[in-house]
Design a protein around this nucleic acid. Sequence first.
DNA 1: CTCCACTGGGTACGTTGTACGCGGTTTCAC
DNA 2: GTGAAACCGCGTACAACGTACCCAGTGGAG
Lengths: 237, 237
Amino acid sequence: MADAEYVNIWLRPERPARGPKPAYSRAQITEAAIRIADAEGLEAATMRRIAAEIGAGAMSLYRYVPSRDNLVELMADRLQGELDVTGMPSGDWRADLTRHADGLRAMWLRHPWIAGVQRSLPSFGPNQLLLIERLMGVLDPFVSIDENLGLMAVLNGYVEGAVREEISSAEEFRRSGLTESEWMARSYPYIDQLVKSGDYPIFTKIVMEARQPHLSRDEQFRQGLQRVLDFIASALP
Amino acid sequence: MADAEYVNIWLRPERPARGPKPAYSRAQITEAAIRIADAEGLEAATMRRIAAEIGAGAMSLYRYVPSRDNLVELMADRLQGELDVTGMPSGDWRADLTRHADGLRAMWLRHPWIAGVQRSLPSFGPNQLLLIERLMGVLDPFVSIDENLGLMAVLNGYVEGAVREEISSAEEFRRSGLTESEWMARSYPYIDQLVKSGDYPIFTKIVMEARQPHLSRDEQFRQGLQRVLDFIASALP
DNA sequence: CTCCACTGGGTACGTTGTACGCGGTTTCAC
DNA sequence: GTGAAACCGCGTACAACGTACCCAGTGGAG
């Protein structure tokens, strides 16, 4: 297994020196795979399906990518490239972080399958590196690098957690083919039974009193984000 | 598909009235599947493997569980049952939340495959309901139910994010068969090249200056958690 | 011109989830 | 008590998956 030499896929050379010109490219394959995953879920992006999408034979893909797992890794890094960090340390850290959080959420919602990809060890792909530079550059003038790492962990944790919830809802509806109201109608007897049992007062409180679930997703997200940004503000000098 | 009637697996009756006594049980199957997934990863917990573990035929499992996806859902809820919330609103909210965060992290580390299970819509299994009651009961006396939901989202987001990072490291090492130091040695040329290029000052700062990566995982987690708890404290009256 | 490292891709293998149907077992209606 | 109905465990079978292996063709290096 000479392949084990490459601990990192970014170190593996894409094009060798000799031989005929390749008909496809890693980027083209990654793009096709993302297109399929967006439309029909990650499990629909099989090697045969991706190959068909670009008009290649199934086994041809293995000339460009060592395995499907590695391809998924490439897809994940390509997604990082969708995050717009141009002019990112702008001087207004709150605006920068808000823009990043909104952008990150929007990207995840465009590509919900990313939630099912447990990130591997930091692979430091080019897009990820750019993101690190710009995003952590926002708070770099104000805090130590350790504090910066900690604050970014909280911010990203909030965004990811919130968007995971949104995604799993949407995914469930897609899979079951139900609309949100159909699903709620279907669930009502069970929830009603839980409430009526009297064993779950807090759960009942959530069902009966909470206004948050009735806000739009955007509004819910924005409110939580404000909370996190206030927290970050309190950690700055 | 009469099965579609059951929007929720908890509504599906396990044992019917008539017929011979079942030889196995849903709990037994779930337990076996968790045992395998803990030891060899979720993808090793195939239907045949699980069946072999309990001495059943492969197809027998389908008498107890509608599909593998549903079984994974059952496994995830079983895990919630490992979270110890006895005597949980104890009066000391900070101690309660610390205990919960530590317990949640420990549970995820015991069952790392949970990171790859994107939670479906809140299925309100019995364990999840108990957790909601006890955990949200901690801050219930102090804040509105909406604020409580928001603060719990931040807390859980932090814990999940942090532990996901730990898990993906461990998983990567397990899969590659390398130790942490072997992996670092293998990655060194690439990282060195990035640093030497001078294009990534913040990344370089992380590599050269940050002390956080050199702390023990426990210490890293605890420091971040203190930050989040401080934040929660600032949101209480 | 001769090599041979490369190309795209066809065939084939092992493994997966699970549909279907079988013969046996338990409970209910009468 | 006796049939029918509802359930049981499970063997067989199939489609779809990732990918190992092999092939004939191609084009730059010597």
